[in-house]
């Protein structure tokens, strides 16, 4: 099964989750997702998701000047974003539990 298809549905949740404890800039967020095991995630997908979440009012941004490299635009969760993360997280866990139970019932190996 193609994980990119699965990723489409949960990328919002994944991006919100990696921003939960620490703000991050675009490339940083991509790196966190890949380190967490989502290796197939594309840069444009992350950038597009960030723009969309920002437009939806779930993220705030601020720019951090850098002496060596380019200025970095950091994204942070706001209250609405934390709310969304909590709700989507619950939805995902319940969905995953349902799917696991469905597969367990039919004797599929994990």
């Amino acid at each position: 099964m193609d994980t990119t298809q699965l990723l489409k549905g949960v990328l919002d949740l994944a991006v919100l989750a990696v921003l939960k404890d620490e703000d991050g800039y675009g490339y940083d967020i991509l790196r966190r997702l890949r380190e967490a095991g989502l290796e197939e995630v594309g840069d444009a997908s992350v950038y597009g998701t960030l723009r969309r979440l920002f437009a939806a009012g779930l993220l705030t941004t601020y720019v951090v000047p850098s002496e060596a490299g380019p200025h970095r635009k950091y994204y942070a969760l706001n209250a609405a974003g934390r709310d969304q993360l909590a709700r989507s997280g619950k939805t995902w866990r319940s969905f995953a539990t349902t799917m696991n139970a469905l597969l367990d019932d039919r004797g599929m190996a994990a």
Binding site: G26, Y27, Y47, R51, G69, R72, K73
Partner: peptide, 25 residues
């Protein structure tokens, strides 16, 4: 709206990795 931050974002990507943008992205 979509491409507003793209130059800054690509500058970040370019700063983190080697190779051309087309190689990377």
């Amino acid at each position: 709206e979509l491409t507003e931050d793209l130059p800054e974002h690509l500058a970040e990507v370019a700063a983190e990795t080697d190779g051309t943008l087309v190689d990377r992205l």
